[in-house]
Design a protein around this nucleic acid. Structure first.
Length: 161
DNA sequence: GCCAACGTTGGC
DNA sequence: GCCAACGTTGGC
């Protein structure tokens, strides 16, 4: 049995593709986190995520980027079927079912929150260490420390500034 | 649409 | 293994 402490993550999703409302409306309120094609992000899912890990659900590439809800990891990593689908934008000709290059986890809805905008996140000192706020950060999945997780939940419980 | 930052590719 | 060129991300 794995007894290591729970981990926390921030995961970016384009709301045009899958918003927090889409996650809430999905079957079993769960979506497969397909389409990650970055090795660092893949490695986080493959090596460091466990069911039960907390997820900050972040809307990116949209008019109001920011944290829109809370979710949790609800599977181990398994191969991303879209990498084998020649009709998919996520197709990867260099991958094969015998040696899948890309894996993903499933993510389940916990709750929708108020939108904690990127601008407000930047104004909040307790959140200044978040990876997603660092200059040039583009990674779609980033680790969140227990302290950062607690700080985000605390700010989410307050009125927007 | 712009552009800075970053990751990947591929020639050498 | 270096590194220039290219593609992508994502806020603005």
């Amino acid at each position: 049995m794995n007894t290591r402490p729970m981990n926390y993550w921030l995961m970016k999703s384009e709301p045009d593709e899958c918003s927090i409302d889409d996650l809430a409306a999905a079957p079993a309120q769960t979506v497969p986190w397909i389409g990650v094609r970055n090795y660092q992000a893949r490695n986080f899912m493959r090596d460091d995520m466990r069911p039960g890990d907390g997820v900050l659900f972040y809307h990116s590439s949209c008019p109001q980027p920011g944290i829109a809800g809370v979710a949790e990891v609800c599977s181990a990593a398994y191969p991303d079927a879209s990498q084998f689908d020649a009709g998919s934008p996520y197709f990867d000709a260099k991958s094969s079912p015998a040696a899948p290059r890309w894996v993903h986890v499933d993510v389940r809805f916990t709750r929708k929150t108020r939108l904690l905008s990127l601008a407000e996140m930047r104004q909040t000192a307790a959140l200044s260490t978040l990876r997603v706020l660092q200059p040039g950060s583009r990674l779609s999945i980033t680790p969140v420390s227990p302290e950062e997780w607690a700080a985000v939940l605390q700010v989410l419980a307050q009125a927007p500034r």
